[in-house]
Amino acid sequence: MLFASSAKPIISLKISVIICTYNPRLQYLEQVLLALRNQTLVNTEWELLIIDNKSSNQFTQELDLSWHANAKVMREEQAGLAHARLKGFKNSIAELIVFVDDDNVLADNYLELSWDFYLSNPQVGCFGGKSVAVFETTPPAWFWKTGISLGCKDDGDEIYISDYRSDNYKLQNYPDKAPIGTGMVITKKAFKAYYLEVLNNADRLALGRKGKALTSGEDNDIVLTIIKNYFEIAYIPKLVVKHLIPTNRISTAYLKQMAYESNKSWITLLRHHGICPFKTIPQWTVRLRKVKAWFKYKVWQSPVNIIKWHGACGTFESLADG
């Protein structure tokens, strides 16, 4: 049964924590909420918005949010991560947003550190930190050769703050130390720039996850959009989030699908922002390229090879779309 606090919400909040979820694994979501409950920033200074993106498992009946003075559960009937995030944005109060997936366990000082950094660096529109994988089962030895991060990233122990505006920066490629979706922190002003661009753009809204699809270009679209709107980005290594990885996500079937869909959406994203380094290819060549790549990658030799081949197929199909 869903419990919510009857306390009167406090309007002057620092942070809006937004959890967008679709049929979450309750065991994981409980760990996510426990980590939020243990935050050093007292919960009277931040709100918690859980966006149920058309789930069918009725997980909300199992939640107890009575510990939080400013917690809400909302349902977004239009499927897709982008629509859930827009719902959270439109209903958020605070000037700083932290996007937390339903398998992201934040370090207990995550919100406090995020707020402190924001106050000291108002020019930064979006930032993040280290995302550390916590596997349900040990990955097979070949997994590490696939190059698939599964939403995890470690860019070292040095703080990085971009300086795009200082040299009349012109976007030419995707920035190496850009924040990822796992634990992404973004100012409301920066996200509004993205919101206004994609609100009525079906192609842009389709870049994010939807149901069981593994399309994964939305986070990158957010980053590129706000850079073009004159916001800086940053990497803060002291911000640490544990990313819970279930066993099915290290299976060959899952990784093949991810390689294919993520590569396809990546090319679409780069094209939209005018920074795709690859030329359009004729549609009639796609099948021939796939056959050639089949032998190039020697897909019969290992799971890694067949996963990389699926990624190449996604790239070919996207390059031919234009």
Rank of each mutant, 00 (worst) to 15 (best):
A7H: 14
I11A: 10
S12R: 09
I15N: 11
I18Y: 02
R25M: 07
R25W: 02
Q31R: 14
L33V: 03
L33E: 04
A35R: 11
L36T: 10
N38K: 12
L41N: 06
W46P: 13
I51H: 06
N53L: 02
F59T: 05
T60H: 09
E62T: 12
D64I: 11
W67S: 07
M74R: 12
M74F: 11
Q78M: 01
G80D: 01
H83A: 08
R85K: 06
E95V: 13
L96I: 12
L96F: 06
D103T: 02
L111V: 04
E112Q: 12
S114I: 10
W115T: 01
Y118C: 11
F127C: 04
K130Q: 10
A133H: 14
T137K: 10
P140Y: 02
W142A: 01
K145F: 00
T146K: 04
T146H: 01
T146C: 09
S149D: 14
C152D: 05
C152R: 04
K153Y: 11
S166H: 10
N173G: 02
N173H: 09
T182I: 13
I186V: 08
K189F: 09
A190G: 06
K192T: 11
A193V: 02
V198D: 03
V198G: 01
L199S: 09
L199G: 03
A202G: 07
L205T: 00
G208K: 01
R209L: 05
E218M: 06
D221K: 00
I222V: 12
I222S: 00
K228G: 00
N229H: 04
I236A: 05
K242Q: 15
N248M: 07
Y254T: 13
L255F: 10
K256T: 05
A259V: 14
N263G: 10
I275T: 00
K279S: 11
I281Y: 01
P282F: 05
P282I: 09
W284T: 13
W284A: 09
V286S: 03
V291Q: 10
W294R: 15
F295H: 14
K296E: 14
V299M: 12
P303L: 06
V304T: 15
N305Q: 15
H310R: 13
G311Y: 01
A312F: 11
D321Y: 13
